[in-house]
């Protein structure tokens, strides 16, 4: 059964938009859960940091962006990549270290980038994306092309000097730059409350002379509406802003993290009550805009797509010795 198409007065997106948002969030979730399972089997080399549980934030923001808009991501970057339009097949191959990967097997999970999609890279250095985003915003402002640039940091990296310097620089130059703090409560294993001296990121933003907004990052619609306003303002020359999304990390800092620092029952509570995709599904089905059947159909397609991405990645060729010294100037 197909639900009625009209979303007017209920949601800020039309039905097509809602379905797209759902598909994006589900793709991220499936991508990450599959990695979680395959990492445990020992199939995947290196460090992997999963975005599962945080999909509403990245998706709610990225729904406003075009390819010309730039983002700089974090070590936990798979969700940002998918939401910004990077091909999950290339990403999966990259994570498997294959030559068909987004970065020809040279970057891995922490360095996936696709500049043609405005994705300036996941980043293994916390807070390093903030200055880069100032540069992307400067380029947009200099060219007058109406693009914006968005930097993602966690609550941990929000303490980095690069991040704080960038808030000031963006304000001084009135750049179309937006700083998103994805506050999932933990910097690795250290709680946000221990490591960040101010209670409110709105206050921190004010200290640098730019507006700050805090939203419930689990609520796709709250993120979508707050981000929409900030992005529109920046596009129109209104300058930078800070957006804090309070959210939940469903897995550990990295795969293999036993998460013993969490309170008893915290993870079970997250699974049961704080899953942003479940919350989104409930909202749209209860409003009668989208049927459970339509969502189930998307689920099946996404599972098949990720299944295919994994199969392709596993079958793809490895880089060869000749690839070792390409893509860089070698002088020695």
């Amino acid at each position: 059964m197909t639900a009625p198409n009209s979303t007017a007065g209920i949601f800020p997106l039309d039905k097509k938009g809602l379905l797209k948002a759902y598909r994006t969030m589900r793709t991220i979730r499936e991508f990450e859960e599959r990695l979680h399972a395959d990492f445990a089997k020992g199939d995947i080399p290196g460090f992997v940091h999963l975005y599962a549980g945080e999909e509403a934030a990245g998706t709610g923001i990225m729904m406003h962006l075009e390819d010309k808009d730039r983002i700089a991501s974090t070590h936990r970057g798979h969700g940002h990549c998918i939401a910004k339009g990077v091909d999950p097949n290339g990403m999966m191959a990259e994570i498997y270290g294959k030559v068909t990967g987004s970065c020809r097997g040279k970057g891995g999970s922490m360095h996936i980038a696709d500049l043609s999609k405005g994705m300036m890279g996941a980043n293994g250095i916390l807070g390093a994306g903030a200055p880069l985003v100032c540069g992307a915003a400067l380029a947009a402002k200099y060219r007058g092309d109406g693009a914006v640039a968005i930097c993602f940091v966690g609550d941990g990296a929000s303490n980095q000097g690069t991040f704080l310097e960038s808030l000031n620089l963006a304000a001084v130059w009135n750049l179309p730059a937006i700083f998103v703090v994805e506050n999932n409560g933990y910097a690795e294993s250290t709680s946000r409350d221990y490591a960040v001296a101010v209670d409110s990121y709105v206050d921190r933003a004010a200290g640098f002379g730019l507006p700050g907004v805090t939203v419930d990052g689990l609520d796709f619609f709250a993120v979508y509406e707050a981000a929409g306003e900030i992005i529109k303002r920046a596009r129109e020359g209104g300058g930078p802003a800070l957006l804090e999304c309070k959210m939940i990390r469903m897995y550990g800092h990295f795969e293999g993290d036993q998460q013993t620092y969490r309170a008893k029952g915290e993870l079970e509570d997250i699974r049961a009550n704080k899953d942003c995709i479940k919350m989104f599904s409930q909202r749209v089905t209860e409003a009668g805009v989208i049927s459970r059947g339509e969502l189930d159909a998307i689920d099946r397609e996404v599972v098949a797509e990720i299944q295919q991405a994994v199969a392709s990645a596993k079958a793809a060729p490895l880089p060869t010795a000749a690839d070792l010294t390409t893509d860089v100037y070698v002088s020695y």
Binding site: M120, C134, S166, N168, L169
Partner: peptide
């Protein structure tokens, strides 16, 4: 005019901004 930018005393931010702008097609 408009092509020379004085920066705050903030080397991480503006050197990084130059790098970010370069990755977006500028030649800073």
């Amino acid at each position: 005019k408009g092509k020379l930018l004085d920066t705050p005393l903030s080397e991480s931010a503006y050197i990084g901004a130059a790098i970010g702008a370069a990755a977006c097609g500028m030649r800073p």
